[in-house]
Design a protein around this nucleic acid. Structure first.
Lengths: 224, 224
DNA sequence: AAAGATAATGGACATCACGTTTAATATCTA
DNA sequence: TAGATATTAAACGTGATGTCCATTATCTTT
């Protein structure tokens, strides 16, 4: 644990010794390969170093254990998504979108495109054989992004009928559900189509989605 | 693995030797205690048998490994939920509800009440320290229940604008998100209130939830 | 290209949890 | 009570873990 910095991989990769870069790359590649072959729990440290062709002693010079490797590997993918979403989802953008009536803002295929780019990884890691911490982290991250959106939306003048963070976490869960469904059953849909399905569903509700008569939603929510 | 039948626990408990009943009860109780104390991965088999005061040899007479014990223990809780939902969610009931305009049917606190009854368990097992297979199983189970509802709803005469199984999986994910949020941040809400929040959110969509102008939803969905 | 610095290596090691086996003991059911 | 069956402690082999060290390979810098 003497060489393991806390900086994001790519950004400072140049500062690392070429040998260290090679080691880390090989280990992460090996883990990603293995994780789409069998469940994370079933992967042994020896599996990883064998696949990477790195000695076990070297592994411990870089990572604490296989969880540590997993988290730092996931961070790469996670950062990629974050950087794609960065700059898009902030209160200014939301208010601009609302002001101009730009629905496309809320119907953005970035998320689904990102998942499609890492389909094998997400399919496994979000599955029953997957990693609980990752599933939950993804949901929380999405919830946070959505919360920003909704706060911007509310700032734009509307008065929320339900707690914004409740809505955010609910929608984040919905998106994880949609993604999981997509990876397992919805292969015929493109990322663009998925984002449209998802937006329509969440924006207008299931009565509309199912073409059923909803009755009038209440003007105010009374929880008593 | 010679004594481990496939039947649900309670129903045939009487047929087991009293000693076997005692052993299994002790082991399941021990696991449930441990699982709310630390992550499932961190629980060792020795922890379980120590807590249960059962010898390790005996454990293996009943269960294959700790995963096996977990799944059979979870099945108790799972069956409890299933039996509560049984009879409520079938196409006849849905059609009756739609025909009589009974919104309460879709706004049923059973799920949230069940979660509240096992709050400690769900809080841990749905968390980052939790068990991926359980999170996914719960979501899939809820999706299946909802799918039945929606098929009944569509049978009742409406024409769906979005794929019913997509809607089901999305809503199931949303409910998991709502439950997780509730267990961590929404303690002030009762199960009844949660079911109301959830119904309103999912039934009428986030534009309504946030009190923002939605514009008109499209009459038909065009995915091209 | 050489020298000094640093990383990777294989191998050995103690440790731990696992899963199985045994003969003896405790507890059930009939 | 007797026979059947479940539980038990103890010991064992196995395989994965994490650490250490002396040696070798590879880098970076000059």
């Amino acid at each position: 644990m003497n060489n393991t910095g806390h900086m994001s991989t790519e950004s400072v990769a140049e500062k690392l010794d070429r040998r260290q870069r090679r080691t880390r790359t090989a280990l992460r590649k090996a883990l990603m390969e293995l994780i789409i072959e069998k469940s994370f729990d079933a992967i042994t440290l020896q599996d990883i170093v064998d696949r990477a062709d790195i000695s076990r002693a070297t592994f411990y010079l870089h990572y604490k254990d296989k969880e540590d490797l997993l988290f730092k590997s996931m961070k790469d993918i996670y950062d990629e998504l974050a950087s794609k979403l960065h700059g898009i989802h902030n209160q200014d953008e939301v208010q601009k979108a609302v002001a101009t009536g730009n629905h496309d803002y809320f119907c953005d295929p970035t998320d689904f495109q990102h998942v499609a780019d890492h389909a094998d990884f997400y399919r496994v890691v979000l599955s029953e054989q997957g990693v609980a911490s990752f599933v939950v982290q993804v949901r929380k991250y999405l919830a946070q992004v959505m919360y920003t959106d909704f706060c911007g939306l509310i700032e734009a003048g509307s008065e929320s009928r339900l707690p914004a963070d409740f809505v955010a976490h609910t929608l984040a869960g919905a998106q994880v559900g949609a993604i999981s469904w997509w990876l397992e059953h919805g292969k015929e849909y493109t990322p663009e189509q998925m984002s449209r399905l998802f937006y329509y569903q969440m924006a207008f509700g299931f009565w509309w989605a199912l073409g059923a008569p909803a009755g009038s939603p209440p003007e105010d929510v009374n929880l008593d």
